[in-house]
Amino acid sequence: MNEKKRQKAAVDQNFCVACGCCVKVCPVSAIEIQKGIAALVDTAKCVGCGRCAKECPASVIELREVSA
C-alpha cells in the first residue's frame, strides 16, 4: 500500500475564542464555529492549505500530518 501523508488543520479548542476568522478564509468551507464555543475542522473537507492557521488571531490552529 502506498501511504500518503496529508496535512489537515487542527484547532486547539481550549484556546479557541470562536471569532470565526478561520471560517471566513477557508476556501472549501471546512470549518465551522460550533455553538459559539470553538471552531471545528471537517477533516474530510480540509485540503490543508493553512489559510486558517495563518489568519487565526490566537494562533491556535496548526497543520498536522495525517495518513490518508
Binding site: V17, A18, C19, C21, K35, G36, I37, P57, A58
Partner: peptide, 15 residues
Amino acid sequence: CVYCPMGTMTQLICK
C-alpha cells in the same frame, strides 16, 4: 478578538 470583552462574554454565555 482574542481579548475583546464582548467576545469573551458572548463565548461564556454560549458555553
